[in-house]
Write a protein that binds this DNA or RNA. Structure first.
Length: 130
RNA sequence: GGGGUAGAUCGGGUGAUCGUCCGUCCGUCAUAAUUAUGACGGACGGGAGGAAAGUCCGGGCUCUACAGGGCAGCGUAGCGGGUAAUACCCGUCUCCGUCCCCAACAGGGACGGACGGAUAAGAGCCACAGAGACGAGCAACCACGGAUCUCACGGAUUUUUUUAACACGGAUCUCACGGAUAAUAUCUGUGUAAUCUGUGAUUUUAAUCUGUGUAAUCUGUGGUGAUAUGAAACGAGGCAAUCUCUACGCGGAGCAAGGCCAAAUAGGGGAAGAGAGACGGCCCGUCUCACUAUCAUUCCCGGGUUGGCCGCUUGAUCCGUCCAGUAAUGGACGGACUAGAUAAAUGAUCAUCACUCGCCAAAGGCGAGAUAUAUUCCCGCCAGUGGCGGGAACAGGACCCGGCUUAUAGAUCUACCCCAGAA
RNA sequence: GCGCCUGUAGCUCAGGGGAUAGAGCACUAGCCUCCGGAGCUAGGUGUCGGGGGUUCAAAUCCCUCCAGGCGCG
C-alpha cells in the first residue's frame, strides 16, 4: 500500500458502522468540522464522510468530500493506527480552501490525541507558524 | 471599430508530483490447487453536461393476462405534416399586439404571441351601476287617443257663509249741545262714536258646465335610444382555462422494476371460510391455487436480512458526404465506440500560456497652458510594452433516450439594424 | 423514483371570480392609574411567493418558475 493512497477498503460504508461511531465514539469540533473517533481492532484506520444537504447542492457537497479525502490522505502517516474516523461537515465549511481545512483538521487531530508523538512536532508546527 | 437583436458552436489549454473509478495485461501472497476468487503492487487505455438540474410531458425496457370490454377518471384540441411518441418540432390559416409605408382611411409589409373544437343537446354565472341582465316584461321619453284629477286664464250659472270696505235703514247705549220739567233725575230732537241687525251692489272664495294650456296618475298603439354598464337593446350577447358535449388518446406500477445466489430469523398472532389472489376506483371477463376442516390453502400483522451478481450500457447513438423535402425530418453510403459509480469515482498543489479588471513604472502621439523663443515644465486623453495583485460562470451521471422549462462568466462565427471614421 | 400539501399584516390563520382583502395576538397614540399591568377608544401595517395568460374583472381559474414541508417503496 502506497504511503499516500486511499482505497475503498479504508472507507466506512455501512450504516451500522456509522451508527456505532456516532453513539460510542468521542467527538471534537470547531466551526467547520465535527470529528468522531472510535478505536477499532483492525490495526488500521478507516474514515467516513458525512456532508448533509444543508451544505449545498451536489457540486458543493462533492467538493467538501474531496477536500476531506485529500487532507486525510496527505496526513495519514502522522496518525496512530486503529481508529474509525468520521468527518461531519458543518455549514461554514463551504468557504474553506485546502490550507485552511488542513490546519483545521490537524488541530482536531491534536485535540483527539491520535497524532503520532514525533509527528506532532515538526510539520504541524511549521504549518501553524507559517 | 463600437452597440443591439436572432441563430449556431464552444464553454479554459499544456506540463510536473501525489491520489481516485473502470477495462485489459503482468507480478507477489492466501484459499480451493488446470484455472478461478480475494488482497496488494505495476504498465497501458478510458473517465460527467449543455443544461447531467427541475421532474413538466412523451417513449423504450421490466413485471403484472405477449394488456381484454364497459363505466368512471385523466389528458389533448384550427388545418396539414414530422416522429417511436408527445402538451414537442415545422409549415400554414385566423385573431390579437407592436413597428413601418401612406397627408388620412382602406390596404400592404416585418416581428412577436395565442390551451384557437362546440354550429347542434342541456345546466350554471354575469357583482356594482342601471328602467331592464338573457328570452320575459317593466319603466323612461316622443307621437296619437281615452279616462280621472290639479292649477292658470276666459265665459256662463248658482249658492250660502265668512271677512273687509261702501251706501241706506232700524234698535240700544255713551258723550256734547238745545228744549220741556223744581231738578245733575226723566222725556225728546240733532250730531258723533260703539255694538247688534237687515237690504243692495262689488271683489274674493266654493261648486257645476264648457274651451284652451299645463302637470300628475292609469291605460292602448307605434317608435326611440340619451343616462348607466365590461358588453348588450327583442341579436338567436359574453364566459366553455364553470360544469357539460364532440373527436382522439391513456391499463397499472416503476431499475428500490425484475431475476439469481448467499446469509439470517420464525415456525408466532389474527381473519376468511367456499372462496382467495393476480387487479390499480367499480362491474364484466381471463388465469392461477383451492373446494369439506383443530389438517391443508389464501391474505394481513409480526420477526429476520437489509450482503453479492445480473439488469448495466451498441443506442430512435455520434461524425462526415450525397439525395428528397419550403422546413421539421427522412433515406443511402463510409467511419467511430464514447463513464458505468453504489457512504457513490475527475481532485489537490505548483508552473506556464491565453481572457479580463485594477494599480505602478519608463518612453511615444495628440490637445490646452506657462516662458521672449526652444529640444524645457505641468495637466488631460489615447493605443501598445513591462511588473504586481485579483477574477474566471451555472453546475456532477445513478436504467436509457426525445422534448420543454429554468440557471449560466465569457469566447468565436453567420445574418440584419443603428452610430462613428476612412477611401 | 413516485405521490401530496403549503406560501395572504411582525406572528398564527380565514377568505375558493366582483370587498377599500379580514380575525386574533402583536405595534403606536390617547383615556384610566401615583406608576405599571389589565381594561376602554382610535390608528398604521399587505408586490396575497415571482412571472405570464383566460376573463369586463384574478388572492381565487390555467400554465410556468421559486421556496418550504410531508408521505410511500
Amino acid at each position: 500500500m502506497g504511503k499516500y493512497s486511499l482505497k475503498k477498503s479504508e472507507h466506512l460504508r455501512k450504516n451500522s458502522d456509522f451508527r456505532r461511531v456516532y453513539s460510542k465514539g468521542k467527538s471534537c469540533a470547531d466551526h467547520f468540522i465535527v470529528l468522531f473517533v472510535l478505536p477499532n481492532d483492525l490495526g488500521r484506520n478507516r474514515i467516513g464522510l458525512s456532508v448533509s444537504k444543508k451544505i449545498g447542492k451536489a457540486v458543493k457537497r462533492n467538493r467538501v468530500k474531496r477536500l476531506f479525502r485529500e487532507v486525510y490522505r496527505l496526513n495519514k502517516d502522522k496518525l496512530i493506527q486503529g481508529f474509525d474516523l468520521i468527518f461531519l461537515a458543518r455549514k461554514d465549511v463551504v468557504n474553506l480552501d485546502f490550507p485552511k481545512m488542513e490546519r483545521s483538521i490537524l488541530r482536531l487531530y491534536k485535540r483527539a490525541k491520535i497524532l503520532k508523538p514525533q509527528a506532532a512536532g515538526s510539520r504541524l508546527q511549521n504549518k501553524l507558524e507559517a
